[in-house]
Amino acid sequence: MTTGTIGRIVDFVLSPHIFAPLIYPGLLAATLVLLTLIWAERKMTAKVQLRYGPLYVLKPLGGAIQLIADAIKFMFQEPIMPRNADKWVFALAPVAMMAFTIIPFAFIPAAPGFVGVDVEYSLPLVLSLSALIPPLILATSWAANNKFTLLGGVREAFMMVAYEVSLFIAAFAVASYYGTLSLSKIVEAQSVPGIILNPIAAGVFFVTMLMTASKLPYDIVEGEQEIVAGPFTEYSGILYMLVMGASYMELYVLSLVFVELFLGGWKPVIPALASIHPAFEGISLFIKAYLVLLFAVFLRSVYARYRLDQALEIGWKKLFPLALLSVIWSLALLLVAGGA
């Protein structure tokens, strides 16, 4: 009887409804990405700048568990609540931000036929869930009642309208070519990677992805050297960990979407892995997404931060027309090829 119960529990955990949001590509894989990616970012930036980066925490592996040490530090740090802050919004907005970055994992297909909740409109659903984060950033910046957070919040409001439009149009350019809004159907229909079919949409999506996650050269909202930490100035301890983690999680979600739209998703599939668990077929999706993430954070060491007006100009005058052009490109391809 016990084996039956345990078997049922194991089956329950291994079923896509639980496995996808909790283990892969969800919470567990995302935590792993978070811990290794920030370390890799610091190491790569240090390498480019002729430094070592984190080194002394577990020295044989080059300080690989530095982020675990940091996480423990944040855990035990005193979370300070500013006296004049709107306390409920201040405390709950980071939690909601983290939640809205985790919910998309239920809708992102991780392997052929392996998705937590299979919906026909997973692409707009995932993108609009991540579009719910900027209003929360605005809420934190208002709730903290501080001039730096308010400046950061205003910057976020400006940036948000500049990038969201291009992000959605670039994604829908791909969707319109394949004639479906479901991520899994887009991956199945991709015989040629989308980046070759529609490089303009890929470029626009990648740049707006950096803007969405406010990574350099578009970390205008946080702008460490200008406005302390932007909307997150007043956060400390575990709440700070949540707001910082949320931006990396958002980058991870969007890079998964990027790989599924433009880099062929989980293809090539290794069938031998499917016998262990169907989710393991998505290993090439994970590797590609991780490489995209590494490239995205590597750009930190190449570029300097754009000013707000420059970024807005890029968003409205360059990316927006390019996004519209990518839709026209897709439609032209459809006319030439006569459907995917």
């Binding site: 390498k47 480019v48 700048q49 002729l50 070592y52 060491s301 570029y303």
Partner: peptide
């Protein structure tokens, strides 16, 4: 060109830090 320069530095083994 900028990204290529960055990658070149990423792959080189030069360091200036004193441990």
């Amino acid at each position: 060109a900028a990204i290529a320069t960055g990658l070149r530095y990423l792959l080189s083994t030069k360091r200036m830090t004193v441990r």
